[in-house]
């Protein structure tokens, strides 16, 4: 079980990724977004095959990785647990070896267990992109969140971002918070102590607030997380209505944040629980941009993994369409 270093271009998490590297991916995503609008996307993945291995159901992440691959002229092959050899008890690593042997150039992996992309990356010589691993990280979601924020504010450093909800079980929160911190934003994790343990704040270099008003105070961005209903069975929260009463984000509560604050949600949202539709669909909401940016960011990380020469050198800021 000797494991080696991940192949260059792998993206396993945002924790530990240096700020400039994150900036470079965001710049590439912006450039690709601009080309996409103009219909001039370069075929950076021509002749490349990307395996999308989804050992857990997913719609938006899978579709946007597939779309990103296609848009850059690559080919995506899709592997879910059902109907694949994974279902027959073959280990993930054996499946990956088969994929590699058939000429796959990169593996995008969604897995319910934390750390599986990292363990896989230690054993295959091709790049591995983490598309969400259990309660650990979801780096492309984090990148698209940060890109969305950068587009809305023109910068990331110095902003205050409140992440509200089940941070403990959220791979999105881990990635987004790590990336934001690397770029100099302030992050505050907000929610009941059962779902926002102080150790997590320490681990992510983020502040912690167990009071929504205090947590939102001064926030430029309010991001709510999806509340999983199974948390009630494990006694993390008493009920959805109790959660809504204390942690649900409403228009009145958005007013606790800084004037002009923007709302975000990684989706899919439980409307009426963690956020009301008024907030979710308001002009101040960035949710729609998040979805579009998802494709751009995934194009960028695929290019980083597979394009000749990796990412193009960062261009001067004025060249980037905002």
């Amino acid at each position: 079980m000797t494991a080696g270093a991940p192949a260059p271009g792998s993206l396993l998490g945002l924790a530990g990724l240096p700020g400039p590297e994150i900036e470079a991916i965001l710049d590439e995503a912006e450039a690709l977004l601009a080309s996409w609008r103009k219909g001039t996307l370069p075929a950076l993945l021509r002749g490349k095959t990307v395996a999308l291995v989804f050992v857990e159901p997913s719609t938006r992440t899978r579709v946007s990785f597939e779309q990103a691959t296609n848009l850059l002229g690559g080919r995506a092959v899709l592997l879910g647990e059902a109907g694949s050899s994974l279902e027959k008890g073959e280990t993930l690593f054996d499946t990956a070896e088969t994929l590699r042997a058939t000429g796959v150039d990169a593996i995008v992996l969604r897995h319910p267990e934390p750390g599986e992309p990292e363990r896989l990356a230690g054993r295959v010589p091709i790049p591995v992109l983490n598309a969400g691993d259990g309660t650990h990280e979801h780096p492309t979601q984090g990148l698209l969140d940060i890109l969305t924020i950068r587009q809305a504010f023109g910068r990331v450093a110095g902003l205050r971002v409140a992440i509200v909800g089940d941070v403990l079980h959220s791979r999105v929160a881990r990635s987004t918070a790590a990336g934001l911190r690397a770029l100099g934003a302030e992050v505050v994790l907000v929610g009941p102590p059962t779902l926002v343990p102080p150790a997590l704040g320490r681990a992510l270099g983020a502040g912690v607030a167990h009071d929504l008003a205090r947590g939102l105070r001064g926030a430029d961005v309010v991001m709510t997380l999806r509340l999983q209903r199974e948390r009630m069975r494990a006694a993390y929260i008493p009920s959805l209505s109790e959660y809504r009463a204390f942690w649900g984000v409403t228009p009145e509560r958005m007013a606790w944040a800084r004037p002009g604050a923007r709302f975000m949600h990684p989706g899919p949202a439980n409307r009426g629980v963690e956020v009301t539709s008024e907030v979710h669909d308001a002009p101040a909401s960035l949710v729609r941009g998040q979805v579009r940016n998802g494709v751009a960011v995934r194009m960028a990380v695929l290019a980083r993994a597979l394009a000749e020469g990796g990412l193009r050198p960062a261009r001067p800021p004025e060249a980037i369409a905002r």
Binding site: G115, R171, R174, P197, A199, L200, A203, L204
Partner: peptide, 13 residues
């Protein structure tokens, strides 16, 4: 062990 290492790895403490 419950604490920052478990939290960062996303593993139950």
């Amino acid at each position: 062990h419950e604490g920052p290492v478990a939290a960062a790895l996303g593993l139950p403490g």
